[in-house]
């Protein structure tokens, strides 16, 4: 099944993409998908400690153990710096 992954700011620059579609397995949880994204876009972890990157699912911060469903909107980004 397919899910959409969005990139912003530094992660958009590193991947040279605003979004991507990735194919994941049926029983994948957030942490698995995150590792898959790191494997497909190695530039992300080349420049950032994995722990410093934030991950969201359907516009909510992820704790890593959520089950991912077909059509979910994922996003990966660096610590926010608005204000």
């Amino acid at each position: 099944m397919k899910v959409k992954v969005l990139f912003f700011g530094a992660t958009a620059d590193l991947t040279r993409k605003r979004q991507a579609e990735i194919e994941i397995t049926e029983d994948a949880v957030a942490a698995n998908v995150l590792e898959q994204i790191f494997a497909e876009f190695p530039s992300l972890v080349k420049h950032h400690d994995k722990k410093s990157l934030l991950f969201s699912i359907n516009q909510e911060y992820s704790s890593g153990d959520e089950k991912i469903k077909e059509g979910d909107e994922l996003a990966i980004f660096t610590a926010v710096s608005g204000g």
């Binding site: 700011g9 530094a10 934030l54 969201s56 610590a79 926010v80 710096s81 608005g82 204000g83």
Partner: peptide
Amino acid sequence: IKELKSTVPIWKKEVYADGEVWVEGEA
């Protein structure tokens, strides 16, 4: 403002005469 700066997904890029950098928060 303290919470906004650590939770709301907005990023700032500082552009200098000789380069630019996406600022990373302290979350």
